[in-house]
Design a protein around this nucleic acid. Structure first.
Length: 247
DNA sequence: CCATTAAACACCC
DNA sequence: GGGTGTTTAATGG
């Protein structure tokens, strides 16, 4: 126990720092603090498994959860990653039935779990909480709209850029700091590419001055630049096959 | 043909 | 020991 890592929060601190918690009145806060619980996951363990009962709303205190879908033939697609400070699962909780996605811990992970009945009670009675949920869902929507574009139109370097930038959405990840603690393998998993391709992409982004590749992670230097990498104007330097090759 | 990846390797934090 | 950086052969569009 007692392991004190840099940003390790307690369950209560994690709840207290979550934006939606601020929307609750005192009684609601007390109930959330009392009835929420913590789960510890080893790498590879499921935070949620498609088809199993969706019995709580899940926040990431520490670690990394990869959201994905899979098909019977074993192929699977990564949807997004949830890092510390992020909340996930509200989509499945908003209607009856089981989880509709898989959530897999990519490394040792601690989860904050808010029981389903509490989540439903807040949705039914607390307008401010609903406002938070709308903003949260809207943020998720724009993330996935961007994902379709990214999957269909962008090359690998740009996919990594977008994947990293998405971890800085203030609504989804209020606790984000410039240093992103993701190994290159994890970045590859989230960006749907191999580790060495992710490595190559990261160095391209570093060359572009958008981030610094570091030990077990990257530090983001230019978030807007990452968001619309490779940009439209001064991207001539990098190889840009396809689009304007005719000229 | 080209890009990407899995596998394997040697560094080094 | 795990995360990197790099090379190799294999794979698929």
């Amino acid at each position: 126990m007692g392991r004190q890592k840099s940003t390790a929060l307690t369950l209560k601190a994690m709840l207290a720092e979550s934006p939606w918690f601020q929307t609750l009145d005192l009684a609601e806060r007390a109930q959330v603090l009392q009835d929420s619980y913590e789960r510890h996951l080893l790498p590879g363990a499921h935070a949620m498994r498609c088809g199993e009962p969706a019995d709580c709303w899940i926040g990431v205190i520490e670690g990394l959860v990869k959201m994905s879908v899979s098909q019977p033939d074993g192929r699977h697609a990564t949807l997004t990653g949830v890092t510390h400070g992020g909340w996930a699962g509200e989509g499945s909780l908003l209607k009856p039935g089981p989880w509709r996605y898989d959530g897999v811990a990519l490394r040792t992970t601690r989860l904050a779990c808010v029981p389903r009945y509490l989540f439903e009670q807040l949705v039914a009675t607390n307008l401010a909480f609903n406002h938070f949920l709308l903003a949260h869902l809207n943020a998720r929507l724009s993330l996935f709209v961007g994902l379709v574009e990214y999957d269909r139109l962008l090359r690998a370097d740009a996919r990594v850029a977008r994947c990293l930038a998405s971890l800085f959405h203030p609504t989804l990840y209020p606790q984000a700091t410039p240093f992103v603690q993701l190994s290159q393998e994890e970045i590859g998993l989230l960006s749907a590419m191999s580790r060495q391709r992710a490595n190559e992409a990261l160095h391209e982004l570093e060359r572009a001055g958008l981030l610094r590749v570091e030990f077990r992670g990257v530090t983001v230097l230019d978030l807007p630049g990452l968001r619309d990498y490779p940009g439209s104007e001064d991207a001539r330097a990098t190889t840009q096959p396809g689009a304007l090759a005719a000229l």
